[in-house]
Design a protein around this nucleic acid. Sequence first.
DNA 1: TTCAGCATTGCAATCGATTAAATTCGACGC
DNA 2: GCGTCGAATTTAATCGATTGCAATGCTGAA
Lengths: 394, 394
Amino acid sequence: MTDRTQKGGGRGAPADEPAGSIGRKGNVRTIADLARLAGVSGATVSRALNDSPLVNERTRRRIQELASRHRFRLNARARQLRLRKTDTVCVILLIDEEAGQGLSDPFLLELLGGIADRLSARGYDLLLSRAEPGADWWEEVLHPRRFDGAIIFGQACEHRRLNALADAGAPFVVWGGRLPDQHYASVGSDNLGGGQAATRHLIEQGCRRIGFLGDLAFPEAALRWEGYRLALEEAGLPLDEALYRPTRFSGESAVRATRDLIESAQPFDGLVAASDVIALGAIRALEQAGRAVPGDVAVVGYDDIPLAAYVHPSLTTVRQDVAAGGRALVDLLLSRIETPPARTAPASQQADGQEPPHVILPTRLIVRQSSRRDGAFTPRMPDDADASGPVGHD
Amino acid sequence: MTDRTQKGGGRGAPADEPAGSIGRKGNVRTIADLARLAGVSGATVSRALNDSPLVNERTRRRIQELASRHRFRLNARARQLRLRKTDTVCVILLIDEEAGQGLSDPFLLELLGGIADRLSARGYDLLLSRAEPGADWWEEVLHPRRFDGAIIFGQACEHRRLNALADAGAPFVVWGGRLPDQHYASVGSDNLGGGQAATRHLIEQGCRRIGFLGDLAFPEAALRWEGYRLALEEAGLPLDEALYRPTRFSGESAVRATRDLIESAQPFDGLVAASDVIALGAIRALEQAGRAVPGDVAVVGYDDIPLAAYVHPSLTTVRQDVAAGGRALVDLLLSRIETPPARTAPASQQADGQEPPHVILPTRLIVRQSSRRDGAFTPRMPDDADASGPVGHD
DNA sequence: TTCAGCATTGCAATCGATTAAATTCGACGC
DNA sequence: GCGTCGAATTTAATCGATTGCAATGCTGAA
């Protein structure tokens, strides 16, 4: 034991911090230290700090005041060990480097920010973890030791694994679309509605042959495709699979896909892209090929990344409410953690009771230049009219 | 206690996992469980798992094999409590919402990815924390309980506070520029060199009146400005402060600043932007005002965000090696954590011994369309020539 | 006066892993 | 045959906070 701790509390009352430095106020690091100062036992201090009704109110206030004066903070590790709880949520980024949606997609960072804010508001820490789809990332989700639950990105890579984890009762939620045979909770934007709105908009702008760029292996992209399909259907337009090009979430992939589409000699006058990054790549490829946007081809993206408004032409896109998304992910996970599902059921049967929860966030179509064909779409940008060149409206 | 743990180990030897589900292999959650299975004491198990030479090699191998068979993992919380170490690094995003560089800057996410990778490679967890500049985020940096050290973003907001923390011996490193009176360790790209290279490039392209967009309150921007100044000086060009516009790290702020510059009627033919996001905002404002890029005004950005190559015109910019940045931040911090500075010195004097370490990462100028004035800069984009319209080169 | 009843507070076990010190046990030298 | 040495292992204390139970002291009723 450290005997250096002074006994007489009276004289030792620490003076105000020395000016210009960050004071330490002695070394009140443990409950025992504080207990000594307060002249009570550690148990009482613990109870006081946790607002237990078992301690006298005056005592409690005295201890709390003492604690804050000395900047005392509980040792989270010890507390977590004792309570068998970590107050930590792990955000797992299952990122397939080859699939393109690396950490570069700005959208992801925004969502992460929303999650961080919500978690801290609810008193949880955020553990960030990158993992590769094939690896053993799931082991700790099944038996978490460093966290109470997980928020997972990368649904597409591991749908079956996620189902198995959910069947085993692991506490997690997933960002992404809702799949037909899905046993786990998830949160995602209204991908179907968004894709539909984007496509309808292009149709309203006069597009008749609209292509789709996205990777249907990603559930979110697949749902956007489904919306695209519905919009075509309701407008009585044919669905031409020749206008689909599988495209990963990267600019480069989008450029390749678009070039491919152009070279296929299939006529098209509109493009629905599964992300803004894809849309920008597509626009680049179109312009390089001498096709004007939106004159020859109108383009709609997805995500409304911060840059979408500042590129040229500015990007029509589907906005997702990322802050709401972060909040929903956290709240859904914590509701699962803090009120565990009926313990009597052997977890493996938990799935067949009812549908796992899925939160759908509303989306909003943001119309900008890349899709506008009303002729007067660029009052402040005479360049554009010129750039559209010889192309008439439809 | 859970009595369900079966005693007889023989018959209970868990069979292979039932197909289609994720097996649990009994409940080997603690060292004590494993010790029981192995027929030794917990101490021996602990030593075996930590490769202590004190245990017989055969015993060690047997225990390790048993542990991996049962997917046993140590309880990190307990270990950390005992060892008074957390094996965790906290990344603190000090973000002034009003300053614009929110979580939206794609650059930040990439850097974060690099940090995550390096930390996990070195066996550390990454705790992510957002904080507001004015708040009490620094308290836990001074006396960390949940982490061993911190990586801090947001130097500008809190330079003095950071100095005070460093004086008090807090374990952290900062991403940003090197400031004159800086007591803390930091990592940043070669802002001065980068700014200089960007400016030189514009001069080579024939620009003579070059503006600068950035917020000099941010050290990184200030250093880029310094490079800008040097490049002008070495070219014998005058430094005209009328061509500087304070600009925060957001597209919107860049649009405003650029409009302001245009309306000031100051002639200018080049712009150095402190970030790609700023550059894109500037290009947008220029085009809205009828000035062609790069024809009338050549523009250089900074960061080389993934989209820089896919916008129109594609963006000339200064690339930072973010992966190396992440690695450097982590390695510098861990070297400080794992070999603490001479304990005898009372920390407060530690600063005046020698300069705190600062890692400067090399930068590379990536030349794309937004600055090229060689006449043949868009072989594949005939549009551009049209778009420039009536404006001659220079 | 005595004692039940209540409000406070203290004691001690506990969470799970680590490690100094003590113990066991077999081999070996004299 | 006996003491010693050393390798291998066990025992028990420890990290810091929580909490069931016991203990304390005080009030008021019998």
